[in-house]
C-alpha cells in the first residue's frame, strides 16, 4: 500500500535547518497494523503528515497505492487523501460547532456522495460506534472516549483504506484507551491498513509490527505478528 524510499524532510527557517526525517525507508502492505514509536521530536508526526499526504517530502520517493505521489500538487494530494485516508488525533479535532452526526457526515460531503447514501452511511456508522443516541450532541457534550469514537467514525465512514492515528489514546484513560484500540483492531480485521503513532509500548504491541524513529532515522522494525498471519485472517 505504501512504500517510501530514501525519504527526507527538512525544515528551513532563517537561522536553522532541521532534518525531521532522514533517509527513511518503509513499506506498509495492505491490511497491516503498524505502530511508530520514538521519543518526542524524533520525527513521528512529520512522517505521519507525509504518509497522510498533508505534506510533501523534501527528497525521496513515496509510493501510495503504486503511484509516486512525492511530487503531487496539493490539489492532487487532497483528492487522493479524501477517498483513501482517515485521521484520528490525540485531541480528537472534531468541529465544535457541528453535531456528532454532522462531524461524521463531513468527509462524505467532500467526497460528493449523494444525500440518501450519505444518510445511510452515517447512520450505519453511528450504530457501529454505539453513538446513535448522541447523534445530535455537540462534541463538548461528550466524554473523551465518546469524542474519540466519533473521530474514528469520521475517519472510516467513507470506507477509507488507510487510517493514520496520532497518539489516539493520549488523552484517554485506560478503559477508553483500550476501547479505541479495540475499535482500531476491529477495523484492521475488517481490512483497513492502520498506522498508529504511540508512546505506549503496550498499545504498540497490538500492532503487527513496530517501527522506531530516533532523530529522524528509522532505526529498527520489530515484527509482532507476521503480515502473512494478518492476510490469512482476512
Amino acid at each position: 500500500m505504501i512504500r517510501i524510499a530514501d525519504l527526507k524532510k527538512v525544515y528551513r527557517t532563517d537561522e536553522v535547518e532541521t532534518i525531521a526525517v532522514a533517509n527513511a525507508n518503509l513499506r506498509v502492505d495492505v491490511g497491516e497494523f503498524v505502530a511508530i514509536m520514538g521519543p518526542s521530536g524524533s520525527g513521528k508526526t512529520t512522517l505521519l503528515t507525509i504518509l497522510g499526504l498533508l505534506d510533501s517530502p523534501t527528497e525521496g520517493e513515496y509510493y501510495f497505492l503504486g503511484n509516486d505521489v512525492s511530487q503531487y500538487s496539493e490539489k492532487q494530494r487532497t483528492a487522493l487523501r479524501r477517498r483513501n485516508i482517515g485521521f484520528v488525533f490525540q485531541n480528537f479535532n472534531l468541529i465544535n460547532e457541528m453535531t456528532v452526526y454532522e462531524n461524521i457526515e463531513l468527509p462524505l460531503l467532500y467526497m460528493g456522495i449523494g444525500s440518501s447514501e450519505r444518510k445511510a452511511m452515517v447512520t450505519e456508522m453511528l450504530e457501529k460506534m454505539r453513538m446513535t443516541t448522541r447523534r445530535n450532541h455537540l462534541p463538548q457534550q461528550l466524554s473523551g472516549g465518546q469524542q474519540q469514537r466519533v473521530a474514528v467514525a469520521r475517519a472510516v465512514v467513507g470506507r477509507q483504506r488507510l487510517i493514520l492515528a496520532d497518539e489516539p489514546t493520549g488523552n484517554l484513560d485506560s478503559r477508553n484507551g483500550d476501547e479505541v484500540m479495540n475499535l482500531l483492531a476491529q477495523l484492521n480485521e475488517g481490512g483497513a491498513t492502520i498506522i498508529i503513532v504511540t508512546h505506549s509500548t503496550e498499545y504498540a504491541s497490538w500492532a503487527n509490527r513496530t517501527v522506531q524513529l530516533y532523530d529522524g532515522h528509522l532505526v529498527n522494525e520489530n515484527v509482532t505478528r507476521g503480515v502473512e498471519d494478518v492476510l490469512e485472517l482476512r
Binding site: 490539489k75 487523501r81 477517498r83 479535532n93 468541529i95 465544535n96 467532500y110 469520521r154
Partner: peptide, 16 residues
Amino acid sequence: SREVGIRKLLGSYHSH
C-alpha cells in the same frame, strides 16, 4: 483555524 485544518484534512480544497 482548527475548523479550517479539519476541513482540509477531510478533503476540502483551498478554494472551497
